[in-house]
Amino acid sequence: MPSAPRRRPHETELHRRGLLFVISSPSGAGKSTIARKLIEVDEQIRLSVSATTRPMRPGEVDGRDYHFVDTAKFKEMVADDDFLEWAHVFDHRYGTPRAPVEAMLHEGRDVLFDIDWQGAQQLYQQAAGDVVRIFILPPSMEELERRLRGRGTDSAEVIDRRMERAVSEIGHWDGYDYVLVNDDVERCFAQVRLILRSERLRRHRQLGLIGFTRKLMRG
């Protein structure tokens, strides 16, 4: 897919602080598909690369898909407060390294998070003013199970565990700023992009606004 043309800044465009854009959903409801599409079309946002203790899967690249570490290293990073958030999911640990995210925020770049409700909650506790949280629901539990089985990547036992976990995850929908139903991926994706555009324009993220308005008033 050809990359989107590079956007040229307008001469009156104000410098802004980046935001932490969280997309959560039960496994199979579409968050990873939508996150991937967003990265492909929007050059202002970068995907946060998590650290994990799970084994690398075929085709994955260390540092691109995840930072693959052993359990001892992960625990050391937790002790050193190197994570913005971390969680224990399906026998493995996942966490967001703090330093690269904070660097992107200060550069005015947005950071995309494909994380669960536990990670979203921790992230909000750490950086509430920078965080925008979207939760994506499946149109039905039957459709969610159909999607999980259609992927062909998990055993029946794992799919059953994912379906059980989905009920718990959906119970946390009210901890999010926006809740969308993914009955059509293109429509849902369009809604996600609209939310991102709107959140970028919030007054408290426009770092150059005070100077710009003072200049206007001086004439």
Rank of each mutant, 00 (worst) to 15 (best):
L148R: 05
R146K: 12
R200Q: 10
K31L: 00
A99N: 06
G171H: 05
Q44L: 02
R162G: 13
L105I: 05
G219N: 06
P100S: 09
V49F: 03
L123M: 14
T12I: 01
L207D: 13
D177E: 13
V111W: 01
V61G: 07
R193S: 12
L137Q: 05
R16W: 03
I170M: 14
K75S: 15
E157L: 14
R98M: 03
F212H: 15
M163L: 14
R7P: 11
L137A: 10
L201C: 11
H67T: 04
P97Q: 01
E107Y: 10
R54Q: 07
E43C: 06
W117M: 00
M217N: 13
L216D: 07
R17T: 11
I115F: 04
E143W: 03
V61Q: 13
R162Q: 15
D80I: 06
E85G: 03
V192R: 00
R147Y: 12
R98C: 02
I34K: 01
Y178F: 15
D116K: 11
R147F: 12
I115Y: 01
G18R: 01
V69I: 14
E85F: 04
L196Y: 13
E142D: 14
E13P: 10
D130F: 06
F113L: 04
R149N: 08
Q206N: 12
E102A: 05
S27A: 13
H106S: 10
M1Y: 09
R205D: 04
Q122L: 14
V132Q: 02
T53D: 05
M217W: 14
G171S: 10
M163E: 03
L14Q: 06
E199A: 14
E157W: 09
M141P: 07
E186A: 15
T153F: 07
V181A: 04
T52H: 02
G28D: 05
D70H: 06
I34M: 05
K215E: 11
S140W: 09
V69W: 02
F135I: 02
D177M: 09
E186T: 13
G129K: 08
Q44K: 02
P139E: 07
R202A: 15
F189Y: 11
R93I: 00
V167C: 00
Q125D: 14
A87I: 00
A127N: 14
E11K: 08
V89F: 08
K31E: 00
A79E: 10
T12R: 08
I23Y: 02
Q125C: 12
P5L: 13
A128F: 00
M1K: 10
A51T: 09
